[in-house]
């Protein structure tokens, strides 16, 4: 098990190299330059632009810059922001907590509402509860986030005036609610559907018939035998979707002016502040890989048929 974890962490390295290369190429072909953006409305003279580009190392050829970046990365150095002059590591560090808070809140909403909902509707297959839940789940999956964000804002902030429209506040819970719901709603709907399908499958298994033949109660069977087997089937979805969720923070944080990694990334792209953009992407990749690794480890805990050695 320990060897497995080490091996998997070592596998992160080629993934990081590959992704950083693609990222580097893409950011390189992006038109415009940070030097031009620093002036704001003013148009900087070509000499100043040249000077700035030299200072940031942008005058060097592509492969040299890539190598320098990778060497820095190996030392844990993500570089320095062009625009602000601060260390990228520190900038990201300041933005990390709001994003984590948002992502975890969305995950909690999705898991604690989506999974029970899917479970319940599978057990009540064919009743109106099932139908309503599944219609809701399908519309939840298909609603674009900027759209549900606007609807929620309109209802809860503009009409009802219960919650703030946007912003982080002082990290208050009431500021967190709308962004977290927006981010979690699609995930929740997806989990509800996946859970329902998984439970329906598990219920038709022979071992569930055995459990009934043993005289166990429905509650016990659902809570023990059905639940555990369902978890095995939906764990992958939970993990994969948490990864996508990190990516989706870009939209939600921007709509709600949430001071997290997602909005930082969007801002840095507009400012052509490539070191910051790269840092944000690397972080999201890292979270994605770590979540997948945790899911794999969790599998070996839930399912005795899976052994890593």
């Amino acid at each position: 098990m320990f060897a497995f974890i080490i091996r998997r962490i070592l596998q992160f390295i080629p993934t990081v190299i590959g992704i950083s290369f693609i990222m580097f190429v893409l950011l390189n072909v992006l038109p415009g330059s940070a030097a031009l953006m620093t002036g704001g409305k003013e148009i900087l003279s070509p000499e100043i632009v040249k000077k700035l580009e030299k200072k940031w190392g942008l005058d060097k050829p592509f492969h040299v810059r890539y190598l320098n970046y990778m060497v820095g990365l190996a030392k844990g150095d993500l570089g320095t922001s062009f625009i602000r002059g601060d260390k990228v590591r520190d900038i990201i560090g300041n933005r990390l907590w709001p994003t984590l808070k948002l992502a975890v809140a969305a995950l909690a909403i999705a898991c604690f509402i989506g999974i029970p909902l899917g479970f319940y509707s599978a057990v009540k297959q064919g009743t109106w509860v099932d139908t309503v839940t599944m219609v809701g789940a399908v519309s939840g999956v298909s609603m674009p986030q900027f759209w549900s964000a606007l609807l929620l804002m309109y209802l809860f902030s503009v009409v009802l005036r219960w919650l703030p429209t946007f912003g982080y506040g002082n990290g208050d819970l009431k500021n967190l609610i709308l962004p977290a719901v927006t981010l979690g709603i699609g995930y929740m709907a997806l989990l509800a559907r996946t859970t329902r399908a998984a439970v329906v499958e598990v219920l038709s298994q022979d071992y569930i018939r055995t459990a009934h033949a043993k005289g166990l109660s429905v509650l016990f069977i659902n809570g023990k035998h059905v639940f555990r087997n369902t978890m095995v089937l939906i764990l992958t979805t939970i993990g994969m979707q948490f990864g996508s969720l990190m990516g989706e923070t870009v939209v939600v944080e921007t709509v709600f002016s949430w001071p997290g990694i997602g909005s930082l990334m969007v801002d840095s792209i507009f400012l052509r502040d490539t070191p910051v953009t790269q840092g944000c992407i690397m972080l999201i990749i890292f979270v994605f890989m770590s979540v997948n690794l945790s899911v794999d480890i969790l599998y070996s805990v839930v399912d005795p048929r899976i052994r890593y050695d």
Partner: peptide, 18 residues
């Protein structure tokens, strides 16, 4: 299970794998 028990044709799938 208590007064009337039953065993099934499919031993491979009749027990919960977990």
């Amino acid at each position: 299970g208590n007064r009337i028990s039953m065993i099934f044709q499919e031993p491979m799938t009749s027990l919960n794998p977990l």
